[in-house]
Design a binder for these strands. Sequence first.
DNA 1: CAGTGATGATAACACGTGTTAGCAAGCGAT
DNA 2: ATCGCTTGCTAACACGTGTTATCATCACTG
Lengths: 346, 346
Amino acid sequence: MMRRRSPTAEDVARLAGVSRTTVSLVLNGVSDARIRPETRQRVLEAAARLNYRPHAGARHLVRGRSEVIAFVMRQTPDQVFADAFLPEVLRGLSDVLREANLHLLLFPLAPDRAPEETIRLLQERRVDGMVLSGPRFEDREWLERWGQETPVVLLGHLANSALPSVDVDNGQAAAMATRHLLRLGHRRVGLITNAPLSYTASYERWLGYRQALEEAGLPYDEALVAFGAFTPASGAAAMEQLLKLPDPPTAVFVASDVVAFGALQVIRRHGLRVPQDLALVGFDDVPLSAYLDPPLTTVHLPAEDLGRAAGQLLLQWIQEGRPPTSTIRLATGLVIRQSCGAGGGA
Amino acid sequence: MMRRRSPTAEDVARLAGVSRTTVSLVLNGVSDARIRPETRQRVLEAAARLNYRPHAGARHLVRGRSEVIAFVMRQTPDQVFADAFLPEVLRGLSDVLREANLHLLLFPLAPDRAPEETIRLLQERRVDGMVLSGPRFEDREWLERWGQETPVVLLGHLANSALPSVDVDNGQAAAMATRHLLRLGHRRVGLITNAPLSYTASYERWLGYRQALEEAGLPYDEALVAFGAFTPASGAAAMEQLLKLPDPPTAVFVASDVVAFGALQVIRRHGLRVPQDLALVGFDDVPLSAYLDPPLTTVHLPAEDLGRAAGQLLLQWIQEGRPPTSTIRLATGLVIRQSCGAGGGA
DNA sequence: CAGTGATGATAACACGTGTTAGCAAGCGAT
DNA sequence: ATCGCTTGCTAACACGTGTTATCATCACTG
């Protein structure tokens, strides 16, 4: 299996009868270089004939840019369910990057793993920047140091971090979902969180829920709040807890669709009907929530837009050479299906 | 914002009081180089102190290897649903790659897009190899040329291709699912495909279905076969078609969970009950199929293992310098839940 | 006709690393 | 003392590109 050397700029130069410098000038379209149209043509033809492409490594070395950005995922395998919309985020991000001729390096980093491997990506200059998805509190330390030298954008967010970030407005969204249930007449509205409150997103959704109650003049009742943790199983356990109450809620806002799946299963096992006996609203709008029975009313998370926005922020930083001050909060919308009892359609 | 130059091997050499060559020899652990333990120590300390990491681009240039492999996804946004287990595949793959110190470049390539951009990855030597997920018939042409020079492994497969590939045994799996329904006493077993038969996987599952019928001495009835195409909506339409039959099936094998979601919805709308009135078996075992009502009996697709196997094949090729002849077919298993009527559990 | 610019191209350097050939010093043997 | 061999290290080249300073040619001007 003879592996023939791939053509270099030198080969193109030889074929076109010019110097390598000229080839470079032509192919990079250097504007203030005076090249006779005729020679330019000869170079272009030679390059086309040889199917020449500049060596990425050589370019990286001399230009100082790898033209690659990393997408670092801080999710545990437990949360694999929560990855339901990872493909969408990636699609949005890669679309934006492709337009700027950047490539996407995928780098999973389990939360129990030290960040060294990620930092190495930067030290080796393997990437020109990164999107950190699901940043954790411990990450603040190294981010502060490296976010100075390299463009880093957070997907999700981190308290007290100056880094640009993209996220949904969790508080507003949770309040909207809760208000919806209140408006339907429910007075005892429960909450099942998507994760422990140490997670920012979880905490914000909890705040939104409280705010909606307050607006409606209802007291915050600790007994009506149960804690989920990413998985359907955790949702099932949380719902069991709520149903055991002497005076159980008539509606529950579950701050994660996936957690809601488990909750719904438990409700069925108890012989209760949704939404007649218990109304439910979820969060995320994962692709399949429309196909549950009943279809789940939920807060739509604009996953693709999140990816796109993160990409744009990163590009802006790279191009302008300094971090954008903007922090993007994308709006969400309530997708009304049947689980809440305000019955869209059938 | 002064951006200080990151340390080079030259800096390490200066600090340790040796030449750059020595630094390279020590840091790469070249075994037949005679270095006094004391100097080795000095070099290591200097490197540690400066936090030195070799520049990825420079290394790429001189070694001829980028230490990156590409994961090329040939899925349409339509099939975004089918991406349900993409995260798992990626996890398996990236695990294997990480152990070999390789990185993962994600490259979506919609089917309507020309392959040039992907080929460019190889021409620029940006990647050392690639995994092509969901290869399409049109890809044979360029794969034949480039699969000689660069390691390429197929995830899914392609008729008449000599490239190593990883896939599940679709025929066997479909036959198993169909046999299960037959064994439960059903005589009129329908099929809803996951995609048009022009897709290899779809075709093979169709063959498996036929084979199981034949074994049971049942005729193949064209009327009992409807065609889905990736989405729940297509499954809904297909199921409508089957239910309109004068003598509808009592059981249906749906060759995709996601398509089955749509089918199930239609069944409910018709007021029929699963599995009492109509038994259902799916395919893929996407994460959420266990949370449907009723939980879906389905063929488990070992997504993470698929990714892992593809990675291993690729590594083998890269390390040994020639393509492995092996083609891997992973076994599947039937996950019996409740939609088939053989009722696991509750 | 000498001087001045513009035009069109190139030689030479830089980027940061891996690797080969070779050099100096030390040591034992003749 | 000289030769040869080992030990420990380094100078020099290669990888393929972008970029700057320079050079030759020619046209135009005073």
